[in-house]
Amino acid sequence: LPEGATATDLVLTVTQMLRKKGVVGKFVEFFGDALAGLTLEDQATIANMAPEYGATCGYFPVSAATIAYLTATGRDKARVALVEAYAKAQGLWIDETSEEPVFTDTLELDLATVVPSLAGPKRPQDRVELTVAAPSFETALTDIFNRPADAERVAVEGEKYTVGDGDVVIAAITSCTNTSNPSVLIAAGLVARKANALGLKPKPWVKTSLAPGSQVVTDYLTDAGLQKDLDALGFNLVGYGCTTCIGNSGPLDPAVSKAINDNALVATSVLSGNRNFEGRVNPDVQANYLASPPLVVAYAIAGSMRIDITTQPIGQDKKGNDVFLKDIWPTSAEIAEIQRKSVTPAMFAKRYKDVFKGDKHWQAIAVTGGQTYEWDDSSTYVANPPYFEG
């Protein structure tokens, strides 16, 4: 991938391509020379978006990247060796000596053409390059949301700031796909670190959150000292698992919500999730954009989709000087260095050795055991389906 592009940008590009092609009911396998440069985490980011690009599944062949991941995450050496031997014996392995598979149809993507992107305001396949995200929103504001382009900002009750169309009211690092990939999480932490050093903060109307897909994320962000930088920008840990992507964003500040609804404002969210359908993220937010975790942090600081963050300042430093995205964006080398130092097999081994035991709350659940599930007729959550009867 080019310098500055992320695995998220790649998957948004792939999603757009496959939606345009039409792959409903298809099995999509990824192959080609670029596989050698993709980590398994990058591959998982792409494969896990299969529902969004419409395929029955998306998958990658087993390769050296698979073995590297299993080793790096503390798996038993004998199990890792078995996986490699089995994949090779069954013809599931791919490397530079493998014959190219035969497919019913193919698409080609040159990874060198991938650029920083978002997707929105309503569908995962509606990718917009970062350089045109601001004018794209202006078009959507009038053409999709039927709002005048020059509507005035409105006061927020009890606050000293105003809100308007295009303001980012939710900035969420969420979703198992992007938050299981160390490269983009570390990138987000580095953006936060550089922003903190310059005295930048999110705009006061932005609700920020961090919901990793794994507790290991907390371990390596803490080890690298990046969690405190994210905390300083309001990206505090809210839990592990699905949050904003499935609507678990929680309510906005009541005064902000009132200002939005009383004035029919088109508020926006920027999240590192998989889905951005209208009404899914938050009832107060009409325009939702998918983006990489570091871009989520950047938009929290900028506070608006109407700012071209590639050319306009996203804020001012402690001395009042303009700060641009390029001033806080990490290099690939910076990200890789921290990943090498802070993401260790020991972290995975420690977190997952007792994964099936659960925490004290899980262990406190009363169970009776047995070969079949004992239905609780009073449960409002898990009910016995009628098609199990006679």
Rank of each mutant, 00 (worst) to 15 (best):
W329S: 13
G279Y: 00
G320E: 05
L325M: 11
L265N: 02
T39P: 01
T73L: 05
N288Q: 15
E278W: 13
V11W: 00
D229F: 08
P345E: 06
M17N: 11
F356P: 09
S175H: 11
A346T: 11
A85Y: 07
S249K: 01
I309T: 05
T45G: 07
G234D: 01
P330R: 03
V132T: 04
A192T: 02
L107C: 11
R79E: 12
A172H: 02
Q125C: 15
Y289G: 15
Y59F: 07
I307C: 13
P202N: 10
G199H: 01
K207E: 11
A302W: 09
F324L: 15
K88Q: 10
Y289A: 15
K122R: 11
E337G: 10
F103N: 04
K319P: 06
N274K: 13
L221Y: 04
G303P: 01
S269K: 10
D377P: 06
T106F: 03
G25I: 01
L230E: 07
N146Y: 07
T310C: 07
L221V: 00
A195P: 01
L70M: 00
F60E: 02
A291Q: 00
A187S: 15
D76K: 01
D76P: 09
V206L: 10
K194P: 06
V217C: 13
A211M: 10
V128M: 02
V285K: 01
S332N: 07
E99S: 14
C57H: 11
N248S: 15
I173R: 06
D223H: 09
Y161N: 05
W375F: 12
L18P: 01
R127C: 04
N321V: 05
T162L: 12
F31T: 12
I335Y: 11
I173S: 07
L141P: 03
K258F: 12
F324N: 05
K318D: 14
G303Y: 00
D284W: 02
L111W: 09
A336N: 03
V62I: 08
S214T: 09
Y59A: 04
R123P: 14
V191G: 11
D223K: 06
D143G: 15
L35V: 14
T97H: 06
N321C: 03
L210M: 07
T142Y: 02
L1A: 08
T310V: 00
S332I: 05
D126M: 08
G164T: 06
M49A: 13
E84A: 09
K201M: 12
T139E: 03
N261I: 03
D165E: 12
E108A: 06
A89D: 10
W329P: 04
G250E: 04
N178W: 01
Y352L: 07
V355E: 09
N48C: 04
K26Y: 14
V296Q: 09
S342D: 08
T372N: 12
A300W: 02
V296C: 01
R79G: 08
T243K: 11
I94S: 08
